[in-house]
């Protein structure tokens, strides 16, 4: 499995600008790692107002169990992607990315 290296820091800004869409191979490699994680603890957005508001949740990894909801809600999917990316970056590298 791919391990994040210090060189990958250069792709963070690219993600921040375009979380969904055309990406450099370097960013795509990071995203394949982040987005391919197992279901236990995996992030999911639960739509609370269609096209306007989403709450962040996490799967437990057990079939049929309720989504574990967090307190984070978003009014833009772009913001939500950035928040999830930061959490994953922190888990893989130990680094807190600035807002």
């Amino acid at each position: 499995m791919y391990q994040i290296t210090p060189d990958d820091r250069q792709y963070v800004e690219e993600f921040r600008k375009t979380p969904v869409g055309r990406h450099s191979p370097g960013l795509q490699r990071i995203l394949n790692l982040f987005r391919g994680e197992a279901m236990a603890g995996k992030y999911v957005l639960v739509c609370t107002k269609p096209h306007r508001e989403w709450m962040l949740g996490q799967f437990t990894g057990v079939r049929g169990e309720k989504i574990r909801m967090t307190n984070h809600s978003f009014t833009s999917l772009h913001e939500a992607e950035w928040y999830v990316f930061k959490q994953r970056w922190k888990r893989h590298t130990g680094e807190d990315l600035p807002d």
Partner: peptide, 20 residues
């Protein structure tokens, strides 16, 4: 698939979104 398949987010290239 969104709740049962780990590859869902890889297929969509975005955090999965669930409806009620």
């Amino acid at each position: 698939m969104v709740t049962d398949a780990p590859l869902a987010e890889l297929l969509t290239g975005q955090v999965s979104t669930m409806q009620p």
